[in-house]
Design a protein around this nucleic acid. Sequence first.
DNA 1: CAAATAAGGAACAATTTTGTTCACTAATTG
DNA 2: CAATTAGTGAACAAAATTGTTCCTTATTTG
Lengths: 199, 199
Amino acid sequence: MRDISVLMSPTRRRGDALTTAIFQAVLSELAVSSFEELTFDKIASAAGTGKAALYRRWSTPAELVLAALSDSATGFGDPPAPPGTGALRDDLIALLEHFVRALDQPRGRALLPLIAHRHRHPELFEQVHRLVIRPHQEVLLSVLRQAVERGEAAPGSLTPRIVSVGPRLILLQAWEGGLVDSGEIASIVDEVLIPLTRP
Amino acid sequence: MRDISVLMSPTRRRGDALTTAIFQAVLSELAVSSFEELTFDKIASAAGTGKAALYRRWSTPAELVLAALSDSATGFGDPPAPPGTGALRDDLIALLEHFVRALDQPRGRALLPLIAHRHRHPELFEQVHRLVIRPHQEVLLSVLRQAVERGEAAPGSLTPRIVSVGPRLILLQAWEGGLVDSGEIASIVDEVLIPLTRP
DNA sequence: CAAATAAGGAACAATTTTGTTCACTAATTG
DNA sequence: CAATTAGTGAACAAAATTGTTCCTTATTTG
């Protein structure tokens, strides 16, 4: 029989390699279903492993999901850095594009069901809010603050509500329509955010 | 034994009365779970009836959900009417408050899971888009158009993107935070929509 | 190269859930 | 008031899914 080991990843993954694969399977499953529908069965088969490997590591789906969300490789490890381009428009575009890219990954696509069913899993949603939403808002706020200092934006723009406009438009655009390309982002910035914050 | 018929609705509901109760049960169930988790079992017990009454009317959950969404009593029968207050600000507030009220009913709370899992049920989402989202956008657009004619808004405001801002902010505010009160609506109108459409 | 560790996959029984139907009786109709 | 229609609740078997464990074997370690 022909040796296919060059085509496949090492036949039997171990340790962190397997853990990472499991995390990705968790997020992928979450992305197309919901937390309630998650089972060790589905996760194992999506990760291409046996259930025993999961039971050896975690005892409940909740534990596993929290671990996958917190993991720095597959989940939301590090908050985005302020772009610091020196111009408000460029900062906004850079930030929102980073956001769109995150939404297009498994971890991002896993967000929607978590938000949608937040009333069923307050603790999971709280985690998501702390790890994802909050940091993004902080960075956006700092970008706007710098713009105000440069005189590029009105001081009155520094409200939570205005800060939320960009991400929320992106989020719903992504959920309702599917893809959000660069043109869409530029339009949101030019048609909405810039006029909204103009001094 | 004491007669409790004064306290309860007629012991045994029939015809449209029962159908309406079933529709409401469907939407309530949908609101706290998802389409995948809907079963004739849960619906029947939520509606306080037997499964046989359901099977006599519909043969699949999908049929039943579409019927509930389309029903004029429980679902989204009629599109909202343009408020026509004569002032843009008042029109916007009236419209968005109507929207918030709809979101706070079972039919509105059933929306989130449907949007969240739209990739799993394109036909259901299409229905929702046609029955709910589209009509709301049309009305908002007509309100803005009138404001432009009165010189209250810039002609450049008549874009689908700008029209979408209000409903999207409301939607996410409701989903992330819970309630959206009148103060919140007024703030959205005054901080975001009015500045955004100013001539 | 031998021993130890841990992955893969299957087998398992138990619990839960499914759709469907039946008998009983309340409500309606003529 | 008799006959018909239709809701209720229970019973049911079939099917699917659950968490858990065991055995074989690939990989690593000393």
